[in-house]
Design a protein around this nucleic acid. Sequence first.
DNA 1: AAGTGGTCTAGACCACTAC
DNA 2: TAGTGGTCTAGACCACTTG
Lengths: 247, 247
Amino acid sequence: MEGANEAGRAPRATASLHQRIVADVEGKIVSGEWPPGARIPFEIELCDFYGCSRMTVNKALGRLVDAGLIERRRKAGSFVSRPRSQAAVLEIHDIRAEVAALGLPYRFEITARARRSARSVDLGRIDLAGGAPVLALRCLHFAGERPFCAEDRLINLSAVPEAATEPFEDLSPGAWLVARVPWTDAQHRIGATNAARAVAAVLGIDVGTACLTIERRTWRAGEAITSVELTYPGAAHRLVARFTPTS
Amino acid sequence: MEGANEAGRAPRATASLHQRIVADVEGKIVSGEWPPGARIPFEIELCDFYGCSRMTVNKALGRLVDAGLIERRRKAGSFVSRPRSQAAVLEIHDIRAEVAALGLPYRFEITARARRSARSVDLGRIDLAGGAPVLALRCLHFAGERPFCAEDRLINLSAVPEAATEPFEDLSPGAWLVARVPWTDAQHRIGATNAARAVAAVLGIDVGTACLTIERRTWRAGEAITSVELTYPGAAHRLVARFTPTS
DNA sequence: AAGTGGTCTAGACCACTAC
DNA sequence: TAGTGGTCTAGACCACTTG
């Protein structure tokens, strides 16, 4: 075919044509040349410009829709999106990896462990019926000699019965669960609290020190798997998130 | 064509065929039926199964690659990805929207405003050469009668000269920037700090109260746009993030 | 060497919607 | 109603990688 020889295998071969179209249009948008709300060329115009078929242009523009950079309306055309809510991708690293990133040796200790039926105090933390069997764990993570993070976790033993007999010697409860139990949904709540006496004691900080708390609940197919509250000494820790374009 | 009549316009018409293929494969993966590392059917096999052309299957699998659910290797086939790092999507709402979500009336006040050349103290906060013109703003956001969040912002006037004369009457500086300046990269740091006297005074809280701090820096094409530090009274605020599968 | 995915085409029909 | 995007096809060639 003519188009294939003319543009599809163009000398700048390394990138495919639809990738080049994506990059070109993206460049026009982020540079401000095509500002939010502007109409970008119709598919047919881009076909002429790049000397390719409509499918190729359509594929490229489809990716830009997925990326949230443009919106398309039949008969009207394609328009540069107006940014709506920004979304940051917060990577949830394993605590071992967080400590390793600091260049410090990592270890953890299980400081409390109890198998029990879910009590009323648990029900606010994990999405269970009263009386369901749970495993309650407390765990302290160290970076070098210093406590790095205190963990308070509930595991739903109906969903993960193997946890009852797992010693958690090599892998921390979090790492063990991630490796073993696929999750389909989860929720985070991130906040700041003044360290209560008990937390201050285990973390080796003064009472009242600001701490970053991360509460994470995980479900698989609607069934609660685990709920964990992580407490980091505030001065010693920052969550770092990388932005992604509107999505 | 035979395929088009048989499956393309099937009775379950509402979703397109490639969307249905995406949903089907995604279901097999998240349900665990196709565990991480498993090979999924070849394109040709899926073509037979759905009675469609290779392009349609290819489009669907391409989306799953983008979503990080599968990886594809020529000659070998397509495989369910092994989860790497978990990532939570943290939605960065406009503060007005956050307050509105609480059902409270929103307003903000600009409490300080200065145009100056970047000083050494600024350079740690924003990615600029010394002497570059910046706009320094302090802003207080209210939920009802109570202070909700204190904002301390620097704007690079080389990148956004219009900010110099913008009164920020209708839109807060953050909302104004989001609407006006497309960003290409940004970074967040989330931490906890004990309220210093100045912050405690403006937020109406006791000195030492744990506060959630969010530091956000934004760039466009490598040029710093703005840097903002938001301080929320810790007890009054939680960041909520929703999990997404591996990405 | 064979088989897979990666890409592209030229055309088609349809649905939606702006005019 | 006309024009746009949404979707799909049947075939083709290529590049890569595994066996």
